[in-house]
Amino acid sequence: MMKILVVDDEESIRLLYKEELEEDGFVVEVAKDGLEALKQVPLFRPDLITLDIKMPGLNGIDTLKRIREMERQIPIVMCSAYGEYKQDLTTWASDAYVVKAADLTELKNTIRRLLRLL
């Protein structure tokens, strides 16, 4: 069973992602900000992380850097309401960038592609 860590400061988003991804057969854990995510990574050892960018405390971009210091291999999908960082971030340290949408098809396809489930 593949494990996914969802990092987002909005509770409703966390809930939505968790339920949707669990329905698709993933084991899902959530974190409400960057610091919590950093604690979860070594404990939960996810196969993939979805990371929001704008969060209080440690934001998504700093969190991405810190996770990469610990874990080089875990695929990370940046999930944001902002579309304009897309160009910069996909070439940098994350593996994908998805602009948040109510239709989760794109996110799910990206996750499956990164986990080689397609």
Partner: peptide, 9 residues
């Protein structure tokens, strides 16, 4: 966008 994602989702 965030609330819309939740509502729509």
């Amino acid at each position: 966008r965030n609330p819309l994602v939740s509502i729509g989702g």
